[in-house]
Amino acid sequence: MKATAEPAVEGFLAMLAAQRGAAANTLAAYRRDLAGAAEAIGPLERATTDQIAKLGTVWADLAPSSLSRKSSALRQFFGFMVDEGMRADDPSSALPRPRARRPLPRLLSHEQVAALFLTAESEAAGGEPEKRRMLALLELLYGSGLRATELVSLPLAAIPRDAPFLTIAGKGGVQRMVPISTRAIKALSDWLLARGKGGRFVFPSPRGGHLSRVRLFQLLRDLALRAGIDPVKVSPHVLRHAFATHLLEGGADLRVLQTLLGHADIATTQIYTHVDASRLVALVNQRHPLARS
């Protein structure tokens, strides 16, 4: 018999949809995780710290990624209840923690990224359509942090006419506006001139449809080889990761980065905070109000 959803859970899910624009799939995942926890320990609205601690046993056989996701759902739920005045205490400190952190993607240095662009720009200057396409792909991967799927399936209708933004349909069909730089617009314009007419995708495939993710992966590794970089170190996700990490190093706000990357949950964005400790210390010393006292 299906249990009736708790009012606080429904309120929490409504908040995720309204304030964070969470997709239907994301909301369904939160609902399943919260319902599963309630089945194991009873109503979450009245759950005690001791009851929450029992989830460590219930979830003992889960993979670290699944454990982290479930714990994040409950942590956000209890934070919501406290913020809304539904509870005076937050029992989430008793939640089990993953045995290991989610592995970080490989990271390219600023020098390696510069080498990729130097090679791509030099080759594109020759005017060959495929080389112009490669530069446009690189600009959008590193300059805007697009996912591989978002990039290869980019429709012509998403290209801005008079505003420096792309309209991206991300995970779950959730749309977001992504800024693109002046140089990326130039690379896109050059590619569109070389591309010719026909098809509805920015990066069409010779066989119809759009460029595949596999082909994008191959193109990047070939470029890395020509730039003198180990091809194993380069992929679409590595460039997306470099985009995020290098923005944070430059002082970007984590919430802004969450929006740019299209993450429904800020916890997903926090993986990118592994910048040098020295930079973080310097940022606090330079920007904190007490630093000027």
Rank of each mutant, 00 (worst) to 15 (best):
M1T: 15
K2S: 14
E6I: 07
E10D: 14
G11Q: 07
L13T: 05
R20L: 14
T26W: 11
A28P: 04
A28V: 07
Y30I: 06
R31A: 13
R32Y: 05
D33C: 02
A35D: 13
A35H: 11
E39Y: 00
I41Q: 00
R46H: 07
T48P: 01
D50C: 00
W59R: 01
W59G: 01
S65I: 11
S68C: 11
R69P: 05
A73Y: 03
A73W: 04
Q76T: 12
F77A: 02
F80G: 03
M81K: 01
V82E: 10
G85M: 08
M86N: 01
A88T: 14
A94D: 08
P96V: 09
R97E: 04
R99Y: 00
A100Y: 05
R101T: 08
P105C: 10
P105Q: 06
L108W: 08
Q112N: 06
V113C: 15
A114C: 02
L118P: 00
A125V: 09
G127L: 12
E130P: 01
M134D: 10
M134F: 01
L135S: 03
L138Q: 03
E139F: 06
G145F: 05
L146N: 01
E150G: 04
V152R: 00
L154V: 04
A158C: 03
I159N: 02
D162M: 07
L166N: 02
G173L: 06
G173F: 09
V174E: 08
V174Q: 09
Q175W: 11
S181T: 14
T182S: 13
A184E: 09
L188K: 02
D190P: 02
L192F: 01
G196D: 05
G198N: 05
G198F: 07
G199K: 01
G199L: 05
G199P: 04
P204A: 07
P206G: 09
G209R: 02
G209V: 06
R215W: 05
Q218S: 10
L219W: 03
R221G: 03
R221K: 15
R221L: 05
D222M: 13
D222R: 15
R226I: 13
P236M: 11
H237M: 14
H237A: 13
H241C: 09
H241R: 07
A242N: 05
A242T: 06
A244G: 06
H246M: 14
L247Y: 06
L248P: 03
E249C: 09
D253V: 11
L254C: 10
L254R: 05
L257W: 06
Q258T: 10
Q258A: 06
T259P: 00
L260K: 01
A267W: 07
T268V: 14
T269L: 11
Q270F: 11
Y272E: 10
A282L: 09
A282K: 13
H288T: 12
L290H: 11
A291D: 07
